[in-house]
Design a binder for these strands. Structure first.
Lengths: 308, 308
DNA sequence: TATCCTTACGGAATTCGTAAGCATG
DNA sequence: CATGCTTACGAATTCCGTAAGGATA
């Protein structure tokens, strides 16, 4: 048994049981991949993969059971390297954060500025992607930290911490009729075409839920990934927007007005997530505490080691 | 990084940093051991061991931090083999139980008889040793299951379950003066020379504690590992015995009488322990439920995966 | 001086990639 | 017939043991 064999098993599952792809991904030859799998199966005395003829189709029962442990071993092997790096150069290394447009654009810049000042030697990579992709990256070990409002909770392999809570707000052109209302209602909003987030992004589910609960049909004329797009179309009069309030900048968005709607939509909690059982370098822990203020060393330590 | 290097690191710590011993233990050459350590240190970029000149003295800070993960990786590697064996042959394999004389001689025979009948193909090895050695064996992965009354609780790496509780009893020759007393007292016992267990065995601490709390000095004329020795000397009149009651067999120990002393000594709980994070084969789980009746599949599953 | 570790070197074993062959959709 | 896996074989690399050398209690 060796690490290469285990890596191949993991990658085979991830790549949908295509050994040619696995070989490419691991920069090795395809026959080598085949042989490694066969050797490991021989050593363990069980078939890991279901085959039809020569093709691999999926994991056998023992394969499924073994996979978890294989993944933990490989994660731990990576942990060894990370721990060693931590001691070799405390202030140096890299940190990959996967997050959504909303966080990257509005919530994180301040934190990142501070982090960069504190750890100038750390190479910080910010990956903008969808909430689901964030989860994927964390699971695959391609990102150290994920930050999003959606998709994070309920993934057993991840530990997550709340960063901050917020409510959607309505954004309209300056002087819009809605600005005259004493208090916003769902009915009033639904009278206009709506521009808001795509499904699966930035609390969209809570928006749908509120209207559905009110039995109110809504005309969503544009669903976008990010608030900048939404604001653009609100500004040209396509409809009114429902956005995260941190996307509104009074100084810059002079043609627009933000109307609070805390009472209309459920609140959203943006969360930070890491993979259970990973070792976080000091600077990564620091980053976590900067983004999720309720988290201190003890909480983090406990959460990382399987607690919670 | 490879498994051999990790094994060498683990074994180096276990063998007190003597690489020659490590080489022997792992059936390899000593220069090979040196090289493997050096290679791993080079790859990780940190020194794992503190050296004076050429000798190794202990772990460095990074070494200590890394060791835990190294041990988990190696344990998981063993888990892979065990899981595979489980599927390859569900009813076949081996099970190593480390336990004390008291359990092996009086508590376990019945269980083992049943187990053998149920799993005739499983090679069951029973290691009789001291409670501390039991813990050592579990920590080193040399035993799958440990059963003892002492030393098990308070070892963080182990999960343990209560098997049964019992109180020490007094054993005297037939017709002894103590048999005439309506109720036994510590004072009455302390008037005689005492024959009982060695420190660290079979609840001895509770015996000392009871007398200490009563301010009663006792004359322990013989301390033995097992009740058979104790009974032998009680029978020849060396003193009176304090033993675990399951050691008394009315049919066979005809020259002796057992006197209950539940009210005099704290109760003892015999516990079964396994190493946290190990994979237990089906038959091993079965063995656990046979010995620790309160434990079912769910409890066990949860306990093995890091939860309390 | 005995113990213990390192370096050096040569042989053995393993690994790995290329080429060829075969099954499957 | 293109894709995907296996077998076969030779080269390269890695691994491992022996021998010799140096430091330390």
């Amino acid at each position: 048994m060796n690490f290469q064999q285990l890596k191949i098993v993991r990658e085979t599952v991830r790549r949908g049981y295509n050994l040619t792809e696995v070989a490419n991904a691991l920069y090795t030859s395809q026959p080598g991949v085949s042989k490694n799998i066969k050797d490991l199966e021989d050593e363990l005395g069980v078939e890991l993969f279901v085959r039809r003829g020569k093709r691999l189709l999926g994991l056998t029962e023992p394969g499924k059971e073994l996979l978890e442990t294989v993944e933990r071993i490989l994660r731990d092997a990576q942990n060894l390297r990370n721990i060693a790096d931590q001691f070799a150069s405390r202030e140096q290394g890299s940190l990959t954060v996967a997050t959504t447009h909303t966080q990257a654009r509005y919530a994180l810049p301040e934190v990142i500025k501070q982090f960069k000042a504190r750890y100038p030697q750390v190479h910080l990579a910010l990956h903008q992607c969808s909430p689901r992709e964030i989860v994927e990256m964390l699971l695959a070990g391609e990102a150290d930290i994920g930050i999003a409002t959606e998709a994070i909770e309920g993934v057993a392999e991840l530990v997550s911490f709340p960063c901050y809570s917020w409510h959607h707000a309505v954004i309209v052109p300056q002087g819009h009729a809605l600005t005259q209302l004493p208090a916003l209602t769902l009915d009033a909003i639904a009278a206009y075409p709506i521009v808001t987030y795509h499904e699966g992004f930035t609390g969209r589910a809570h928006i749908d839920k509120a209207f559905a609960a009110a039995g109110q049909a809504v005309d969503i004329v544009l669903s976008a990934i990010d608030a900048d797009v939404i604001k653009t179309y609100v500004e040209i009069g396509l409809g009114i927007g429902i956005v995260a309030p941190m996307a509104f900048n009074p100084a810059k968005d002079t043609g627009l007005a933000l109307l609070a709607a805390d009472h209309l939509f459920d609140d959203n909690t943006t969360r930070l997530a890491v993979h259970r059982g990973v070792y976080l370098r000091d600077y990564a822990r620091q980053f976590v505490t900067m983004v999720a203020p309720g988290v201190d060393e003890k909480v983090l330590q406990k959460a990382l080691n399987g607690g919670e």
